[in-house]
């Protein structure tokens, strides 16, 4: 019984949240890796682009709510995804046309494009500030819990409760759909294969008649879908604070690099590696050990390796360790 309690405790406070957080990071990391693989630069505007897409979902959600439209048990925000994705792609293509496109034609080195993306990041932040402002907004509606701790305890008779938030299940479910569709596209369709070919060997792709403009367009479209959906899922799960997305860039880049930058599978798994590392290393295990150890050995401290304030330090350490010992990532990617 104690053993079961310990498992439920871990499931509730570490595994489930890590799977959710990992999915959100994975979407962002695939975004980073795609841009790096195809357009060949580290996009520092990633976090704010995610925030930008989410902003439209928030605004439209409020509008739909004011009209009395909702999505039943599911969050209204899910209805707004197509609109938000559309706005995001429109914004990305505009930025690409007027900013990135120029430097791509000039064949600027990747570092220069990365610096340009920092500029794009500041402008994006400013636009967000103008349109919606910096304050914290909740836009989650519908059923909040699929399973409440109290109900779980009543059903199973255990001491520990298991809470399953609807956002957790939605996040994991939507991520599986989006990521599997994307991998299907990249591996099974002609356009997807041409994207991978372009990423692998640009000159030969041109000699084979692949149109670089089309590859760039498709890349931004996929990136827009990933960024917006990743951002909305994160916003639903926590809350929409526009500038928190900027902070998330560290774990997102760490995930992309751990997975081997340029390798979308790696980025996907990297998201979970970072999420599990962050949550496992900052969780206080006191209660867990109280369940599994005999009374005489019970810990007196919190048994917390690191305070949650240091969770970004974990991503950062993983990033540094990977870059020192395996610069091409755990799952072979391009060397940085």
């Amino acid at each position: 019984m104690d053993f079961l309690n310990a498992i439920i405790l871990l499931l509730n406070f570490t595994i489930l949240p890590a799977l959710t957080y990992g999915s959100q990071l994975a979407l962002g990391a695939i975004f980073v890796t795609l841009i790096y693989g195809v357009l060949r630069f580290a996009n520092f505007a990633t976090g704010d682009m995610m925030s930008f897409g989410t902003m439209f979902a928030v605004i439209l959600t409020y509008y739909l709510q004011s009209l009395g439209i909702n999505f039943g048990m599911l969050p209204t925000a899910l209805l707004t995804i197509p609109f938000a994705v559309f706005m995001m792609i429109f914004y990305m293509l505009t930025v690409d046309k007027f900013v990135f496109g120029y430097y791509r034609l000039k064949k600027s080195p990747p570092v220069q494009l990365a610096m340009v993306s920092v500029g794009v990041m500041f402008v994006t932040q400013a636009i967000i500030r103008i349109i919606i402002g910096p304050s914290d907004r909740r836009f989650l509606d519908g059923e909040k819990f699929i399973l409440k701790a109290r109900e779980f305890k009543e059903i199973t008779g255990l001491n520990e409760g298991l809470t399953i938030k609807s956002t957790q299940i939605i996040t994991i479910f939507v991520t599986i759909i989006v990521v599997s569709t994307m991998f299907w596209f990249l591996n099974k369709t002609k356009t997807g294969t041409s994207m991978r070919a372009y990423s692998d060997n640009e000159d030969l792709a041109l000699l084979s008649g692949i149109d670089p403009k089309k590859v760039v367009l498709i890349t931004w479209i996929i990136a827009g879908i990933l960024a917006t959906i990743g951002g909305i899922l994160y916003g639903l799960d926590k809350s929409y604070r526009p500038f928190v997305y900027f902070n998330n860039m560290l774990p997102i880049f760490a995930a992309a690099i751990v997975g081997g930058i340029g390798n979308p599978y790696g980025a996907f798994l990297g998201g979970y590696v970072i999420a599990f590392a962050e949550i496992f290393l900052t969780y206080a295990y006191k209660k867990f050990f109280m369940y599994i150890l005999p009374e005489s050995l019970e810990p007196t401290s919190l048994v917390q390796l690191l305070s949650t304030d240091y969770k970004f330090a974990i991503s950062f350490s993983i990033l540094v360790i990977v870059l020192l010992f395996r610069p091409s990532g755990i799952f072979e990617g391009k060397k940085i």
Partner: peptide
């Protein structure tokens, strides 16, 4: 290329991350 002139460069003349089949398919893009 469209007119039927094909070129094999000296280096980097394959898509090394793609399978043989995919390389051939891209050749006929």
């Amino acid at each position: 290329v469209r007119k039927g002139i094909s070129f094999v460069p000296q280096t980097k003349n394959v898509f090394s991350e793609l399978t043989v089949n995919e390389n051939l398919k891209i050749g006929a893009f």
